[in-house]
Amino acid sequence: MNLAASYEQWKSLMVLGEEIGFFKEFYVKFYQAFLENNRWLQYLEGVGTTLLTTALALCIGILLGVMVAMVRTAHDQQRPGNHNPLLGLVNIICKVYVTIIRGTPMMVQLLIMGLVIFKSSRNFTAVGALTLGINSGAYVAEIIRGGLMSLDPGQAEAGRSLGLGYIDTMRFIVVPQAFKAILPALGNEFIILLKDTSLITVIGGKELLHAAQGIYGRTWEAMFPLVGTACIYLVLVLIFSWFQSKLERRLRQSDRR
């Protein structure tokens, strides 16, 4: 039987208030949410935007996070009596940034960025990605800083005692070991970021949840679009976690062998 034809037939029965049974009703709602008018294309487009936003925010977040973490650690590890005033100033800026971002809700940040700072911009998705990136940067910075700090100070001391400079010690000794330690926390942060992209709908970002909202706004049936959206997010996160555990296993192998 033709899919569209049976949808039309059962739907008209439903509109008349007739009992058509659980499976037929399920079919109608499913068809309406995903297949009618090729709506699955809208979800697909939404997923594309979601992934693009995540990738963009990820890049901004890592860039900001690494820079802030580097400044904060370098500042804390200066030789006493050898303080660099410029580094001190940048360190204060970094501290303020982390404090403000971690101290205010993501949603409020999004609204401020979208409705106040970039009031005249029509590119909501880009503004959303930028905000998410700035937000994520603060958390990534703290994760990286924590990883660098958690490493036995004896490792850096051994490097320095051999005459290696600060940069070389970081590059060959501290960072490779810290990276392994922070990978789980970092992966967690990326998953949060991926899911938080759904928040950019509040400023009009056109990602997956936005697509779902558009559809149930037209069909007056919210369950299928929303549960479908949840499922898509879940699958994305599962793929993400799979890659992450794969990477972790690879890194662990190198030190046991």
Partner: peptide, 11 residues
């Protein structure tokens, strides 16, 4: 310098 806890680089 030689340390009490060796401080070899495990990586």
């Amino acid at each position: 310098m030689v340390f009490q806890h060796f401080n070899l680089f495990p990586n």
